[in-house]
């Protein structure tokens, strides 16, 4: 309005400056970690510099980190993580999608109860279920099996994801389904041919979140998996830290960096859907 061109320009520069400063504060710790994995041990502390000093960059940290234990390399533990994480993500997506579809778009007896139950379990701390489920799995022989980490997801146990998908589905006009019914599609066909393509952003978001949280999950594998040949990545990294922190920080950082890479790559591959997808859960409606 009343602002001159220069004023507007100054305003813009201040805003970019602010964005960049906050960005640096947020990202610096990670860059420092990645940079430190190229440093010699004595160079890591006491400096804020991300880069190793000239001529002192080392790469053997990564080679050391790759062969993370005497028996196995880091890939082995990553593969173990995948053994529960891929089924977990798949079943979560499928079962939450079905549930959300029925709740958001169908009228049936007991709908109010079902939706209420989803909301209440959404607010319930996960912790409440842990001990009984552990004892239950012990009874049915699921302990120390990868399935113990995803069996509940086969049955749509994440109310949070159901809720996210419902919120998104509400924005899709119902005329779409009605047209499909006219064409003689059954419910599954409507869902997968008509609704799912429109749901792509939220499904990618749910998939990513489920995957990343599963990757970060430490307590689950710690409680449920015991045999050494089932050790997952998060647990082995922790053991390395305990065993070796006094010896080589560079190696620990390199292992950490390797552990983070898949997550960061995955995040960036889905980032353009992801940011909007998460923002949608606020539930203003």
């Amino acid at each position: 309005m009343g602002l001159s061109k220069t004023q507007r320009r100054v305003n813009e520069i201040i805003r970019y400056g602010l964005l960049i400063i906050v960005g640096i504060i947020l990202i610096y710790p990670l860059l420092w970690m990645i940079g430190s994995s190229f440093k010699e041990n004595r160079e890591i502390f006491g400096t804020l510099s991300i880069f190793p000093s000239a001529g002192h960059a080392v790469f053997n940290n990564f080679a050391d980190a790759w062969q993370i234990t005497k028996e196995h390399n880091i890939w082995f533990y990553f593969a173990n993580t995948m053994k529960f994480l891929i089924p977990k993500t798949f079943f979560t997506l499928l079962s939450c999608l079905l549930t959300a579809y029925v709740i958001a778009r169908k009228s049936f007896k007991g709908k109010k109860f079902v939706f209420g139950a989803v909301i209440i379990t959404l607010l319930m701390p996960e912790l409440a279920f842990r001990i009984p489920l552990y004892l239950f799995y012990r009874q049915i022989g699921l302990l120390d099996k990868f399935a113990s980490l995803y069996i509940a997801d086969v049955f749509a146990s994440s109310s949070f994801f159901i809720f996210m998908i419902i919120q998104f589905m509400r924005t899709i006009p119902t005329e779409l389904d009605e047209a499909a019914v006219m064409d003689g599609c059954n419910e599954l066909q409507i869902l997968f041919k008509i609704i799912v393509p429109v749901l792509k952003p939220i499904l990618i978001t749910v998939g990513l979140l489920c995957f990343m949280w599963g990757m970060n999950d430490f307590q689950g594998p710690l409680i449920y998996l015991n045999s050494p040949d089932k050790t997952v990545l998060s647990v082995i990294l922790k053991q390395q830290l305990d065993g070796e922190a006094m010896v080589s920080y560079g190696r620990v950082f390199a292992a950490s960096t390797l552990g983070l890479l898949p997550m960061i790559a995955l995040f960036f591959s889905g980032a353009r859907y992801f940011v909007d997808g998460v923002a949608n859960t606020g539930g203003k409606e």
């Binding site: 960005g23 990670l30 990343m212 949280w213 960061i264 995040f267």
Partner: peptide, 12 residues
């Protein structure tokens, strides 16, 4: 700005 959050309670 979202990057720190994807790391969550990660051991790393």
């Amino acid at each position: 700005y979202y990057i720190p959050s994807i790391l969550g309670g990660n051991v790393t």
